[in-house]
Amino acid sequence: MSVRLISALSFVVFAPLIGGLISGIDRRITARMQGRFGPPVLQPFYDVYKLLQKENVIARVRQNAYIDFYLLFVIFSGMLLFAGQDLLLFIFSLTLASVFFILAAFKGSSPYSLVGAQRELLLVMGYEPMVLFAAVAFYMATGSFWVSKIIVHPVLLIKLLPGIFLGFFYILTIKLRKSPYDLSTSHHGHQELVKGLTTEFAGPSLAMIEVAHWYETVFLLAFVYLFFAATPWLGALAVVVCYFLEILIDNVFARAKWEVAVKSSWLVAAVLGFGNVAVLYLLKGF
């Protein structure tokens, strides 16, 4: 078996464990920031275990099929990344996963999940330009779209791509569903859309959404690591710091409205993303 395959398979096996653990630590730190004691670190696993025990209540037939595809494509995207495949393929596969999730919510047909799905579409529209800029910038910096090439690039990429990194960090808040951009589905149901996208899902399918989110967390953090791949210890530190900052941002912001989310992500993409790409272009020429 090739190294790539082993890497991809170990992602499939270990990512949920790591993702769940991160989620547990996240909940504990969040609780402490709010002056609470917080749940046990393993609580997310207990939650998912309990969700799996529950009856699979559905509002519409086959709404859960979309969730199956969502999880499948999230795992597939992560495998692509960990197998060192094409970055563009990873991005589009991830987008496809989001689309399945949105379709599932539309299928759910409750007004809450409908509005949640519309908001999620707008959010996807908001963060997608920045992700594409990131891919382009990685190519310009390393000369390859292939993650396997990017990861062995000798130069510390953050030096070349500071704007891209900051921009990516900005949309990470959306992708990790953290306040202020948790408007399509918040981790706690206290918003006008209840839990937005996920309102109509219960039991095992909700557990699948949760597991998919763990996978997502892991490969998004892996993406952060790419910027620092040349110096592994720095990469690990960056991942920890980034995630901690995300928790902090989650706790010091009110939930924004979708207009702000879209406008600001585009602004960030235009200034930081495009700016960085433009500078790279000037530095390297094409």
């Binding site: 709010q34 002056g35 609470r36 004691f37 706790n251 010091v252 912001f253």
Partner: peptide, 22 residues
């Protein structure tokens, strides 16, 4: 004025929680 709450939040992160283990 963004991140205005950071000080309080970080402060309570390192101090004893206000809740108790009932």
């Amino acid at each position: 004025s963004l991140f205005a709450f950071t000080k309080t939040v970080l402060g309570s992160m390192v101090s004893k929680p206000a809740t108790r283990m009932y």
